[in-house]
Amino acid sequence: MQLEVSVPLLISDCTRGRTRFPLEAGTLAEALRLLVETYPLLRVHLYNEQGNVREHVLLYYNDDNIAWLDDLDIPIQPGDKLRVLQAVSGG
């Protein structure tokens, strides 16, 4: 099943310049794995050395931050979205 991924413009150099692109995956867990396998430069922006999501990074599956989900083995449905956000500190 295909889901739409969006990433901030500031790290789109890691995704061949694209800020929005499709990804084929069966589950959310697989989508998260494939995202950094397909775009390996993205890994350092999203995860720390321990493999945890960086604190200023927010990964949203549709309306939910994945940090609040009990289980990532969620089957992808048509129209699902995976959004990569970075908390913005400038001002």
Binding site: R54, H56, Q86, V88, S89, G91
Partner: peptide, 13 residues
């Protein structure tokens, strides 16, 4: 939302 902030990825104005 952001924990301790983690430096914001070094992206500032």
């Amino acid at each position: 939302l952001i924990g301790s902030g983690d430096g914001g990825g070094g992206q500032t104005c």
